[in-house]
Simulated assay, not measured.
Amino acid sequence: MTGVWALLGAVAVVAVIGVVLRVQNGRIRTGRVGTDLPEPVRALLDPATPVTLVQISTTFCAPCRHTRALLEDLAGRTDGLRHVELDVTDRPEVAAGLGVLRTPTTLALDASGTELLRVGGVPERDALLAALRPHLPGPIG
């Protein structure tokens, strides 16, 4: 009988973890203040672009492909917005330096490298656009 209770307890813990991850997926959070960007990320910034969306990915990440398509489309339709992708599969020190614990994670950085916001998981298009609106000069796509 103890084995049945242990199994039920394990199932309950896994269910709670699943619910927490689902709730946090795609949630927009304010950027981390005072974070020094690792050099591979700083090299991706364009001083002429007001906001760069840096997508942190890994080669084995299936949601990363969906995020890439969404962010590329969004950047293509929005003035002042650029999308770049950084694969950290072989560079865990970059992910650790940014405080990234899961992929995809999207960082919105201004031209100076200040983190404006971050999204863990696949972002919701409309929510991301609304959060970026104050930082962009032109019409939003």
Rank of each mutant, 00 (worst) to 15 (best):
R22D: 12
P134D: 05
A75M: 07
W5V: 15
P63K: 03
A62W: 01
L45R: 10
P38M: 01
L109K: 05
R118S: 07
L132D: 02
D36A: 15
G34N: 07
R32W: 10
L128S: 09
L7P: 01
E93T: 02
D110T: 05
L74Y: 06
P50T: 08
L101I: 15
E115G: 06
L81Q: 05
A15P: 05
V94S: 00
T2C: 03
T35D: 08
D73T: 11
L37T: 06
G31T: 06
P123V: 01
R65W: 10
L86F: 11
L8Q: 13
L132Y: 01
A69W: 10
A96C: 00
R68F: 04
T58R: 12
R32E: 14
E72R: 11
I56C: 02
T58A: 15
G26S: 02
T30V: 09
P104H: 06
V122E: 11
P63H: 01
R77L: 12
G76P: 05
E39T: 15
R118I: 02
G76V: 03
L44I: 05
T67Y: 00
L117G: 03
E93G: 14
G80H: 06
T35Q: 14
G76W: 09
R32T: 09
I17G: 10
D36I: 08
L86T: 04
V14T: 14
V84A: 02
L44M: 08
I140E: 03
Q24G: 00
I28Y: 11
P63Y: 01
R29S: 12
A62N: 05
G9E: 13
V94Y: 00
V14G: 12
S112P: 03
V100C: 06
Q24H: 14
A131E: 03
G31M: 11
R82Q: 07
A75Y: 08
A111I: 03
T52V: 03
L86V: 13
A130M: 12
L98C: 07
G141W: 00
L129G: 15
I28C: 07
I28D: 03
V19I: 13
D90T: 09
G34M: 10
V13Q: 07
V13E: 04
E124Y: 13
